[in-house]
């Protein structure tokens, strides 16, 4: 089977992840959606790496992994800070900045 199918799979996961950001009010779940998008990109990279027979894609995926981990730390820290202030992690609540 052609590894390009994994790229199709990645595209689907990417779309699902983006939909989660749009639809979920729970900040943590929305954030998991972003993580899924990053992972979908990783899957595409690895699949392309296989297609080209080069390892660069894997390396890139490796970096993405590290970056995503760092991003998670910061993101969750912000979410906790918001939670401490508001006692909620709903994304709909902090909506005073508008217009």
């Amino acid at each position: 089977m052609d590894p390009i199918n994994f790229v199709i799979l990645a595209s689907i996961l990417f779309a699902i992840g983006s939909a989660a950001v749009l639809l979920r009010r729970n900040a943590i779940i929305a954030f998991m959606g972003v993580e899924l998008m990053l992972n979908a990109a990783n899957l595409a990279l690895v699949a392309f790496s296989r297609i080209h027979g080069e390892i660069d894609g894997q390396i890139m995926a490796f970096f993405v992994l590290v970056v995503a981990a760092a991003e998670v730390v910061v993101g969750l820290a912000i979410i906790i800070a918001v939670f401490r202030a508001r006692q909620t992690i709903s994304l709909d609540e902090p909506a005073e900045l508008k217009g």
């Binding site: 929305a30 993101g75 918001v82 202030a85 508001r86 902090p94 909506a95 900045l97």
Partner: peptide, 17 residues
């Protein structure tokens, strides 16, 4: 600070997106 948190959360989420 509420606004500050809100700004950070939005910036972060959209930035990551």
């Amino acid at each position: 600070r509420f606004l500050s948190h809100e700004g950070a959360l939005k910036y972060f989420l959209l930035g990551a997106f």
